[in-house]
């Protein structure tokens, strides 16, 4: 635990995020998990339709860190949102850690095998029991096996695969996470339905 930081159990959306948090703790770098949400897109009515919540904020370094473990070719959407964020909030310092960066970090620490275990859909955190009612357990298991790169629970999605449009508008972090879980569950259920009835798997 970083010096001066209260004990916390952040509900990480992805195992790789938990691993990065352990690394930061190890080197006594203070962090908070998804503390801020930045609106990056609005409707004509002025409603927020797209937002970006970086995974970590490192207060001592005044730096946001976004970690993605998707393969490079699947992060176009995240890159676009990051560019938008930098345009709209030029004073915000943010570092995007790609899958390759994370793997190299694990390689440096001699834990490359762990990077493989934590990357992509495989590394998705199991939803807490408290939220089990929000999810459809059986279809999720089938859908993950059927479409490993289609979506992750932390809002990472390949271009054009987000049926709900995008992350929730700016709001409470807990509500946004719950919303993401619901949408992930809906996507998983739909993917499972397609598998069951023999339709084409999601791209």
């Amino acid at each position: 635990m970083a010096a001066g930081m209260p004990p916390r159990r952040a509900p990480f959306a992805h195992a790789s995020e938990a691993e990065l948090a352990r690394i930061l703790d190890f080197y006594e770098v203070r962090w908070t998990y998804e503390p801020d949400t930045f609106p990056v897109g609005w409707s004509l009515d002025g409603d927020v339709v797209e937002s970006f919540a970086p995974d970590f904020y490192l207060p001592d370094l005044d730096l946001y860190v976004e970690l993605t473990t998707l393969k490079q070719k699947l992060v176009r959407k995240k890159n676009r949102k990051l560019r938008r964020l930098r345009e709209l909030y030029p004073d915000v310092r943010i570092k995007l850690f790609y899958a390759r960066d994370f793997r190299m970090l694990m390689l440096k620490f001699g834990r490359l095998a762990l990077a493989d275990e934590l990357s992509g859909t495989v590394g998705q955190a199991t939803p807490p029991r408290a939220h089990a009612a929000d999810l459809a357990p059986a279809p999720i298991a089938i859908a993950q096996a059927a479409a490993p790169d289609a979506a992750t629970d932390d809002g990472e999605e390949p271009e054009g695969t987000d049926p709900a449009g995008d992350e929730a508008p700016a709001g409470g972090t807990r509500g946004r996470r719950r919303g993401r879980r619901r949408r992930a569950a809906a996507r998983a259920a739909e993917a499972a339905r397609r598998v069951v009835v023999g339709e084409t798997e999601p791209a």
Partner: peptide, 14 residues
């Protein structure tokens, strides 16, 4: 100590 080193696993701190 470096992160992941066996000698430091228990403490979790550098």
């Amino acid at each position: 100590s470096s992160y992941g080193g066996t000698a430091t696993e228990s403490s979790g701190l550098v």
